[in-house]
């Protein structure tokens, strides 16, 4: 079976072959879920948002121009869905709720090294959440989503130079907050 590019599949969806959207979902829902989870910190809401994003792309398939990448379009739609979600839930900033994961991990491996690493991780998570939504989003996109900075620039609607400046600023801010938290 021939492997089609994302854009080819999306253009087929646009022309009425809606089943191809299932294939795109298969390819991208994990990455999208990761982005949304890191932004919201909540599993179920992130899963709902993933479905919402793909449904939006299905419904507004005619808006896909084909000139840009499918992936950047997907993040555009996701950011809109996310902004709607934050408006609805009335929360500017989300709080990571990692207790479930942590408790599981703790129950299985109890050692000093694990406890230390867990503490570090909690501090990092706290530091991430202390960032502004813009900086947090930028770091997530750059660090976890395996995107080229050109793609990041397209997703955020800013030029590449601006991305470079902001990445450094965001990372410095994160480092400072993390150091402050560690020294307490």
């Amino acid at each position: 079976m021939e492997i089609f590019s994302d854009n080819t599949l999306m253009l087929q969806v646009k022309e009425g072959d809606l089943d191809k959207m299932g294939l795109l979902f298969q390819r991208h829902h994990q990455a999208l879920y990761g982005f949304l989870y890191r932004m919201t910190g909540q599993k179920e809401q992130s899963e709902d948002l993933v479905q919402n994003v793909f449904f939006r792309m299905l419904k507004y398939r005619h808006a896909f121009a084909g000139s840009g990448e499918f992936k950047t379009w997907m993040y555009h739609v996701a950011r809109n869905a996310l902004s709607d979600h934050f408006k609805r839930s009335g929360k500017k900033k989300s709080v990571y709720e990692l207790s479930v994961v942590e408790n599981k991990v703790m129950a299985e491996h109890r050692s000093d090294a694990m406890i230390e690493s867990r503490q570090n991780r909690q501090l990092l998570e706290k530091a991430m959440n202390s960032l502004s939504n813009e900086n947090k989003e930028l770091l997530i996109l750059c660090r976890f989503q395996e995107l080229k900075y050109k793609e990041v620039a397209t997703i955020l609607n800013i030029n590449e130079g601006a991305v470079k400046v902001r990445v450094h600023r965001a990372l410095s801010e994160l480092k400072n907050i993390y150091q402050q938290l560690s020294n307490k």
């Binding site: 829902h29 879920y33 989870y37 890191r38 899963e47 993933v50 479905q51 690493s117 990092l124």
Partner: peptide, 17 residues
């Protein structure tokens, strides 16, 4: 930052979609 793990999504996501 790698240490910040995320919860795995439910297995039924593809089926739901």
């Amino acid at each position: 930052l790698d240490a910040i793990t995320i919860e795995e999504p439910s297995a039924g996501m593809q089926a739901s979609f």
